[in-house]
Amino acid sequence: MMRTAISILKKDLRMEFRSKESILAMWIFSLLIFVIFNFTFEVSRLVMLEIAPGLLWVAFVFSGMFGLNQSFALEKENGNLRAMALMPVDGGQIYVGKFFSVTIIMLMFEALIFPIFIIFYDLQLSLGMFRLIPVLLAGTIGFTSLGTILSAVAVHTRNQQILLSLLLWPLVSPIIIWSVTLTGMVLSGEVTEAFYPLLLRVGAFDVIFFTLSYMLFDFILED
């Protein structure tokens, strides 16, 4: 059953790692985000710490957008989207494959960006920081589960990148708002009792978005 999804995932990762330049470019780009924000808002360290969680997510989300655009541009290139519609498999399986490849690539970017973030904003590493892992996972999955299906929608237009931003940003804003709140709690070390219920809520919406997209993906492939 998962054969299709795994094949697609393997194929996507293989292609992604083959174009190492684009990974490097994306990493430099997120570096730039930190630099530019630093110059445009010349603020004290204290304020910087307050906006740091938001900044971190801006960098994450930009790298995520990049991955999403790339992912379906590859499929459109040689008519592969039509090839997917012709495959003797469930459209949901194709969605799962694409979802995992986009998510893994985004998480990889996050792993590359986070150390720089720590250095630039001189954050103290502590054991409590491990709480960031579920936060990043939940936020990223929310972003990519919606992003994957909307990217498959946007790829049918000529202005793919703009349209994906227009569709995805407003829809994913709740997830991002919550993720920023949660990240802020962990980074400031003020993990209140609201932390876990909120994290659970993000997780619940991840499940909703994923299931909905899984069910609707067949309609996107159909003409």
Partner: peptide, 11 residues
């Protein structure tokens, strides 16, 4: 089989 290739250039 059509004029579309159904192939990935990077593979």
């Amino acid at each position: 089989i059509s004029h579309e290739m159904f192939l990935y250039g990077n593979l």
